[in-house]
Amino acid sequence: MSISRQILYIQRKSPLAGSEAFESVEGILMAGVFDQSVSVLFMDEGVYQLSEMDTQSLGLRNVNKLCASLGLYEINKLYVSKESLEQRGLSLQQLSLQVIALPTNEISGLISQHDIVISS
Protein backbone atom coordinates (compact mmCIF):
# COMPACT_ATOMS: atom_id res chain seq x y z
CA MET A 1 0.00 0.00 0.00
CA SER A 2 1.62 3.22 -1.10
CA ILE A 3 -0.56 5.68 0.81
CA SER A 4 0.11 5.93 4.51
CA ARG A 5 -2.14 7.95 6.76
CA GLN A 6 -2.07 8.75 10.42
CA ILE A 7 -5.37 7.37 11.67
CA LEU A 8 -6.72 7.80 15.19
CA TYR A 9 -9.59 5.64 16.37
CA ILE A 10 -11.51 6.89 19.41
CA GLN A 11 -13.38 4.13 21.24
CA ARG A 12 -16.07 5.68 23.46
CA LYS A 13 -18.86 3.12 23.60
CA SER A 14 -19.43 0.49 26.26
CA PRO A 15 -18.45 -3.02 25.17
CA LEU A 16 -21.89 -4.59 25.02
CA ALA A 17 -24.23 -1.78 24.00
CA GLY A 18 -24.98 -3.25 20.60
CA SER A 19 -22.17 -4.67 18.51
CA GLU A 20 -20.65 -1.28 17.63
CA ALA A 21 -17.65 -1.62 19.92
CA PHE A 22 -16.77 -5.04 18.50
CA GLU A 23 -17.32 -3.98 14.90
CA SER A 24 -15.22 -0.85 15.44
CA VAL A 25 -12.27 -2.89 16.65
CA GLU A 26 -12.63 -5.08 13.54
CA GLY A 27 -12.31 -1.84 11.55
CA ILE A 28 -9.18 -0.87 13.46
CA LEU A 29 -7.57 -4.24 12.73
CA MET A 30 -8.35 -3.80 9.04
CA ALA A 31 -6.52 -0.45 9.02
CA GLY A 32 -3.57 -2.40 10.47
CA VAL A 33 -3.78 -4.87 7.58
CA PHE A 34 -3.46 -1.89 5.23
CA ASP A 35 -0.22 -0.90 6.96
CA GLN A 36 -1.50 2.44 8.16
CA SER A 37 -0.10 4.31 11.11
CA VAL A 38 -2.86 3.58 13.60
CA SER A 39 -3.41 4.93 17.11
CA VAL A 40 -6.32 4.10 19.40
CA LEU A 41 -7.70 6.22 22.24
CA PHE A 42 -10.10 4.59 24.68
CA MET A 43 -12.26 7.07 26.58
CA ASP A 44 -15.62 7.42 28.37
CA GLU A 45 -17.41 4.04 28.57
CA GLY A 46 -14.98 2.78 25.93
CA VAL A 47 -12.35 2.22 28.65
CA TYR A 48 -14.34 -0.85 29.68
CA GLN A 49 -13.27 -2.46 26.39
CA LEU A 50 -9.90 -2.80 28.13
CA SER A 51 -11.33 -4.78 31.06
CA GLU A 52 -11.35 -8.55 30.95
CA MET A 53 -14.79 -9.86 30.12
CA ASP A 54 -16.61 -13.18 30.00
CA THR A 55 -19.44 -12.83 27.51
CA GLN A 56 -19.98 -16.52 26.86
CA SER A 57 -23.12 -16.77 28.98
CA LEU A 58 -24.67 -13.96 26.93
CA GLY A 59 -23.85 -15.63 23.64
CA LEU A 60 -22.10 -12.49 22.46
CA ARG A 61 -18.61 -11.84 21.16
CA ASN A 62 -15.90 -10.53 23.46
CA VAL A 63 -14.49 -7.17 22.36
CA ASN A 64 -11.76 -7.32 25.01
CA LYS A 65 -10.38 -10.51 23.44
CA LEU A 66 -10.44 -8.83 20.03
CA CYS A 67 -8.52 -5.86 21.46
CA ALA A 68 -5.83 -8.32 22.56
CA SER A 69 -5.03 -8.96 18.90
CA LEU A 70 -4.26 -5.29 18.12
CA GLY A 71 -0.57 -6.00 18.75
CA LEU A 72 -0.56 -8.78 16.15
CA TYR A 73 -1.38 -6.10 13.57
CA GLU A 74 1.36 -3.87 14.92
CA ILE A 75 -1.14 -1.48 16.41
CA ASN A 76 0.79 -0.49 19.51
CA LYS A 77 0.02 3.19 19.99
CA LEU A 78 -2.74 2.69 22.52
CA TYR A 79 -3.98 5.46 24.79
CA VAL A 80 -6.60 5.71 27.49
CA SER A 81 -8.12 8.87 28.90
CA LYS A 82 -6.71 9.27 32.41
CA GLU A 83 -9.84 11.12 33.50
CA SER A 84 -12.19 8.43 32.14
CA LEU A 85 -10.23 5.78 34.05
CA GLU A 86 -10.25 7.74 37.30
CA GLN A 87 -13.97 8.52 37.02
CA ARG A 88 -14.60 4.77 36.89
CA GLY A 89 -12.26 3.90 39.73
CA LEU A 90 -9.95 1.98 37.41
CA SER A 91 -6.17 1.96 37.29
CA LEU A 92 -3.79 1.07 34.45
CA GLN A 93 -2.86 -2.14 36.30
CA GLN A 94 -6.45 -3.37 36.05
CA LEU A 95 -6.49 -3.14 32.25
CA SER A 96 -5.77 -6.13 30.03
CA LEU A 97 -3.48 -4.24 27.63
CA GLN A 98 -0.51 -1.94 28.00
CA VAL A 99 -1.79 1.54 27.29
CA ILE A 100 -0.59 5.07 27.90
CA ALA A 101 -2.73 7.22 30.22
CA LEU A 102 -3.40 10.55 28.57
CA PRO A 103 -4.42 13.63 30.57
CA THR A 104 -7.46 15.47 29.21
CA ASN A 105 -5.45 18.51 28.14
CA GLU A 106 -3.37 16.34 25.78
CA ILE A 107 -6.30 14.86 23.86
CA SER A 108 -6.65 17.78 21.42
CA GLY A 109 -2.93 17.53 20.65
CA LEU A 110 -3.22 13.79 19.95
CA ILE A 111 -6.16 14.41 17.61
CA SER A 112 -4.32 17.14 15.70
CA GLN A 113 -1.41 14.81 14.94
CA HIS A 114 -3.69 12.64 12.79
CA ASP A 115 -5.09 13.00 9.25
CA ILE A 116 -8.17 10.91 9.93
CA VAL A 117 -10.12 10.44 13.16
CA ILE A 118 -12.76 7.74 13.41
CA SER A 119 -14.76 7.79 16.62
CA SER A 120 -17.13 5.07 17.73
Binding site: M1, I3, S4, R5, G27, M30, A31, V33, F34, I118
Partner: peptide
Protein backbone atom coordinates in the same frame (compact mmCIF):
# COMPACT_ATOMS: atom_id res chain seq x y z
CA UNK B 1 -14.14 -3.65 5.55
CA UNK B 2 -11.00 -3.24 3.49
CA UNK B 3 -12.99 -1.24 0.96
CA UNK B 4 -13.69 1.34 3.64
CA UNK B 5 -10.05 1.60 4.73
CA UNK B 6 -9.12 1.96 1.06
CA UNK B 7 -11.67 4.78 0.58
CA UNK B 8 -10.59 6.48 3.78
CA UNK B 9 -6.89 6.57 3.05
CA UNK B 10 -7.31 7.71 -0.54
CA UNK B 11 -9.72 10.56 0.35
CA UNK B 12 -8.81 14.14 1.26
CA UNK B 13 -11.55 14.30 3.89
CA UNK B 14 -13.38 11.65 5.88
CA UNK B 15 -16.69 12.38 7.63
CA UNK B 16 -18.48 9.94 9.93
Amino acid sequence: LGQWVDAMISADRVVV
